[in-house]
Nucleic acid binder design. Structure first.
Lengths: 161, 161
DNA sequence: TATATTTAGTGGCATATACCACTAAATTGA
DNA sequence: TCAATTTAGTGGTATATGCCACTAAATATA
């Protein structure tokens, strides 16, 4: 009963990462029977929704580094869920698409995902969940990054900017 | 104007990870002059706040796998910011603490962190930020994991549980 | 048109994070 | 007290994710 270490919960960034680990773990457990990870489901789903998007476009949508996306896709390509198709008109571009096998897996995982999502909404409350997603999606937008970058950090001199 | 791929933003887990990447990036940029990453700052700060916590305790507080914590700590130990001290009474246990150098770095980074935090609160709004942290911290609690696990996913039969 | 700049992707390297198998130490129980 | 079980950490392996350097291709510019 001496010190009882508490979490340092004032940093939004740390709080976000911590919650992300927790929820990631929870979803992961539900998705486990599929043999794929939560992140991979997100990826397959985004690919399914953004038909024929290039790697660049996909990376932007996912707010992810282009090379990170490339790396993350490797196992999915290796295992036949996803394929890269060179663009005809711009030879730099590669378009990402699900294979039939990948689409089947994505649909199969969606059944499991629905369970996780239902559990989440029951645990947190539908309103709360909706509000949280709105806030998170707002933070993910490019306009938020701009607002953040432009925002005052309290150390500016009086100079006009 | 053919398809305009939109993000798939109904999955709270994906939304959380996406927002985490975005905000992580934003904080990272502000903390960059220190030479350490955002996650490392979180780690140093949590260690500073939980004096003499064991790896196990720290992992629980951070909602992190024990081995993941061990791995993440490696570079910080290697570079002299953190040290592990074997516990006297329980020889399995190792207590984690900042070196004087580590403490100095943590304090130095806190100056930068305050700027990032200020920018964040200005960009999102103080109320919103506060509410978001509360929601995230709630999700990070063990009680939430229990609620999630116990929650209905809509597929239960009428059996009593 | 020839050159400079920008854009898309790749590969290497480093950190972040999880799971599994394994060791050592503490705790339980017979 | 000795065997069975639980707990704390470690090391290996795999995915997740970012940065940098580099190539190739497209675009802009002189």
């Amino acid at each position: 009963m001496d010190d009882t270490p508490k979490v340092w919960d004032f940093c939004t960034n740390s709080a976000l990462k911590r919650a992300s680990r927790q929820l990631g773990q929870l979803y992961e457990d539900v998705l486990a029977p599929s043999g794929l990870r939560g992140t991979q489901y997100s990826l397959l789903s985004q690919i399914a929704h953004s038909k024929n998007a290039s790697l660049r476009t996909l990376a932007d949508l996912l707010v992810m580094d282009l090379s990170a996306l490339g790396h993350t896709l490797k196992p999915l390509i290796r295992d036949g869920y996803v394929e890269l198709v060179p663009d005809a008109s711009d030879r730099r571009v590669k378009r990402v698409q699900l294979t039939p096998f990948g689409l089947k897996k994505q649909q199969e995982m969606t059944v499991l995902w629905r369970k996780a999502q239902a559990r989440f909404e029951n645990a947190l409350g539908k309103q709360e969940a909706e509000a949280l997603r709105r806030a998170l999606n707002g933070i993910s937008e490019a306009s938020f990054a701009e607002a953040f970058t432009r925002a005052s950090d309290g150390t500016e001199s009086g100079a006009k900017g």
